[in-house]
Every structure is written in C-alpha cells, then in structure tokens.
C-alpha cells in the first residue's frame, strides 16, 4: 500500500482552476519529486495534502487512512510534515526555542500548564540531537532573523523533521540558495534515512535528478507525466514545457 495517495484532487480559487484531477502516490522511503513551470499548482497540491487548504474534490489518504476532511494538525500525527517555500519560522525566537516548539508538538505534555517547558529533559535532549545532527548547535542562542538565509532554509527542514515524520514534504528546499548552499542541502537530503519518504517540489534540475527516484510533471494544474527519472529526462514534451511553449525555464 502506498504511504501517501492523492486521488483526483481538484482545487479552484474563484473562477481560477488551479488543480484538475491530480493523482499521485508516494511509496515508503521513496524520493518523489514534483516539477513543473511556475503556476502549475505544485504548492497548492502540497497545501491540499497537508490540510492547510481544503481540496474541492478528490481524496487524500495517508497509509490507507482517509484524511481528506481531517484538520492539518491531525495529519501530522499520522506522520506527515512539511516545509514552506517561503521561509516560515518563528523569527523573533532563538533557534533553540524554534526547535522546542517543534519537538513539543509530539510530546504528551504539550497541553500541560504548570512545569516550565525548559525543565523537560527529553525535550532538551531531542533538541540537542537535532541541532547537532544538522550543524546548528553553535547557532542555538541566535535569533532566527540573525541566521544566514541558507541556515534558515536548513532550520525550516529541521523543524519539519522534529515530528519524526514518515512522509516529509519539501517545498523548493534550495530556492534562493547560493550554489554552495544548494550543493550542501542536496547532500543533506540525499543522506536522509530511507525511513522517511520525501515528496519534493524542486526547480533546479541538477538537484531534481540527484535526489529523485520518481518524478511527477505538473502542467496547468494537471499531471502531465509521471515516471522514473530516465523516462522523464528523455521525454521531448517535458522539454517542450520547460524550454519551449512560452513557459519560463528555471533550471
């Protein structure tokens, strides 16, 4: 059974049909990349999957559980996590405080109203492990708005990983990064354990082909083509979408 199944999802904003009958599947441990020109509806697919936007029709299932009408926070408890295309952090808080909020989300004491949060040993331990693993430990006392852009993008991923997801949705993880930062982020993504399946939106074709083992091409809100990387790379029509047909190339 696939870990994530999107079935015939459509979404319109007013009279603008953004998604038309979109279906895709993510298998456990898979690296599934969604590509497509600007305005193809990639981020909207993400928002429908995470529940931050309701789908107009169609269904979404996580590991066989229908989550179509489920609020976003319940989907997280089923193992779904996401990052945002535009950096979306707690910019006034320190790196460590950001992590505290992310880690607490899956702790049983998240509703507790007496003992100070900083007293929970397991929280401190989990936070330290994540920060050390992602090389942000030395930056933990800094406010997020003091970090470099690349570090903020990494923190974006670390926050999502804090909930120990089974499926992680990354929305353009390398957007706006310098070539060096892009290379580093790409290798970090490649090194992620296979216990986490990835669904990634990416424009940079080098990044796409170095991480993907399955690609879905979205065009005008519809699935245009999906298949293994070799198949998509060789497809004339995909090149047409990206480099011909008036669409702006990104790679």
């Amino acid at each position: 059974m696939s870990l994530l199944a999107v079935n015939g999802v459509s979404k319109a904003f007013g009279s603008l049909q953004v998604l038309r009958d979109v279906s895709l599947e993510v298998q456990p441990g898979q690296r599934h990349v969604i590509i497509g020109p600007n305005g193809a509806g990639k981020t909207t697919v993400f928002k429908c999957i995470t529940g931050l936007l309701p789908a107009d029709s169609g269904s979404i299932a996580i590991d066989g559980t229908d989550v179509t009408g489920m609020p976003a926070h319940s989907r997280v408890s089923l193992g779904l996590a996401c990052t945002f295309q535009k950096t979306n952090l707690f910019s006034e808080l320190t790196v460590e405080e950001n992590l505290h909020l992310a880690v607490t989300a899956r702790k049983p004491y998240r509703f507790r109203i007496w003992k100070p949060l900083s007293w929970y040993e397991d929280l401190q331990r989990d936070t330290r492990e994540l920060l050390q693993e992602w090389d942000l430990w030395s930056r933990r006392r800094h406010r997020v708005d003091e970090l470099s852009y690349g570090e903020q993008r990494i923190l974006e991923i670390v926050l999502a990983l804090a909930s120990k997801p089974r499926i992680l949705l990354l929305d353009e993880p390398t957007s706006g990064m310098s070539p060096a930062e892009t290379a580093r982020t790409t290798s970090l993504i490649q090194e992620m354990p296979r216990s986490v399946a990835l669904l990634v939106i990416e424009h940079d074709m080098d990044v796409v082909f170095s991480i993907a083992d399955y690609i879905t091409v979205l065009h005008h809100g519809e699935v245009f083509l999906s298949g293994p990387p070799e198949e998509v790379r060789g497809d004339e029509r995909v090149r047409e979408i990206y480099f011909g047909g008036g669409a702006r190339p990104h790679a």
């Binding site: 931050l52 926070h73 945002f84 979306n88 707690f90 006034e92 989300a105 899956r106 926050l159 804090a162």
Partner: peptide
C-alpha cells in the same frame, strides 16, 4: 508568532 507554522507542526 506564527499560527500557520504551528498548525503545520501539528498543533
């Protein structure tokens, strides 16, 4: 600070 992110984190 950031309600959208808190929802995405599972709150």
């Amino acid at each position: 600070e950031n309600e959208l992110r808190m929802r995405a984190l599972g709150y």
